[in-house]
Amino acid sequence: MTNLAPLVSTISAAFLGSFVEMVEAFTIVLAVGLTRGLRPALTGAVLALAVLTALVLAFGPLLALVPITILQFAVGVLLILFGMRWLRKAILRSLGIVPLHDEEAAFSEETAALRRQAGDRRADYLAGLAAFKAVLLEGVEVVFIVIAVGGAHGQTLNTSLGALAAFVLVVVIGLAVHRPLARVPENALKFVVGLMLTSFGIFWTGEGIGADWPGADLALLAIFAVVALASLAIVRWLRDAHPAPAGERPR
Score class of each variant (00 low, 15 high):
residue 100 L to A: 06
residue 33 G to E: 13
residue 104 E to C: 02
residue 250 P to G: 04
residue 245 P to E: 09
residue 214 P to W: 07
residue 206 G to D: 03
residue 103 E to H: 06
residue 36 R to G: 04
residue 89 K to A: 00
residue 19 F to N: 04
residue 144 F to P: 00
residue 61 P to D: 12
residue 219 A to N: 12
residue 33 G to M: 14
residue 42 L to H: 08
residue 38 L to H: 11
residue 10 T to G: 10
residue 94 S to A: 09
residue 27 T to D: 09
residue 223 I to K: 03
residue 208 G to T: 03
residue 129 L to M: 14
residue 190 K to H: 00
residue 169 L to P: 10
residue 38 L to S: 13
residue 46 V to K: 09
residue 110 E to D: 08
residue 44 G to C: 10
residue 120 D to F: 14
residue 160 S to V: 00
residue 188 A to S: 02
residue 190 K to W: 00
residue 143 V to W: 06
residue 82 F to W: 12
residue 173 I to L: 14
residue 168 V to N: 15
residue 213 W to P: 06
residue 70 I to G: 07
residue 145 I to V: 10
residue 50 A to G: 11
residue 85 R to A: 04
residue 35 T to A: 15
residue 177 V to T: 12
residue 37 G to L: 13
residue 153 H to R: 15
residue 29 V to P: 06
residue 89 K to N: 00
residue 145 I to C: 04
residue 192 V to T: 08
residue 64 A to Q: 11
residue 207 E to I: 01
residue 238 L to Y: 04
residue 135 V to Q: 07
residue 60 G to A: 15
residue 191 F to L: 07
residue 245 P to T: 13
residue 179 R to H: 12
residue 126 L to K: 10
residue 128 G to Y: 01
residue 119 G to W: 11
residue 70 I to T: 14
residue 160 S to Y: 02
residue 8 V to T: 09
residue 249 R to C: 10
residue 174 G to N: 11
residue 221 L to H: 07
residue 175 L to E: 03
residue 141 E to F: 11
residue 35 T to L: 13
residue 137 L to Q: 03
residue 207 E to Q: 11
residue 102 D to Y: 05
residue 72 Q to T: 08
residue 85 R to Q: 04
residue 44 G to M: 05
residue 6 P to T: 12
residue 191 F to N: 02
residue 235 V to T: 10
residue 238 L to C: 02
residue 221 L to W: 08
residue 140 V to C: 05
residue 27 T to Y: 09
residue 192 V to I: 14
residue 2 T to K: 04
residue 75 V to L: 13
residue 146 V to S: 05
residue 157 L to C: 04
residue 206 G to A: 10
residue 172 V to F: 14
residue 124 D to H: 13
residue 84 M to K: 07
residue 119 G to H: 14
residue 194 G to A: 03
residue 226 V to R: 13
residue 15 F to I: 11
residue 120 D to I: 13
residue 249 R to D: 08
residue 44 G to W: 12
residue 11 I to V: 13
residue 250 P to R: 00
residue 111 T to F: 07
residue 192 V to D: 01
residue 97 I to H: 04
residue 164 L to H: 00
residue 243 P to N: 14
residue 212 D to M: 14
residue 210 G to Y: 12
residue 197 L to E: 06
residue 186 E to G: 08
residue 193 V to R: 00
residue 177 V to D: 05
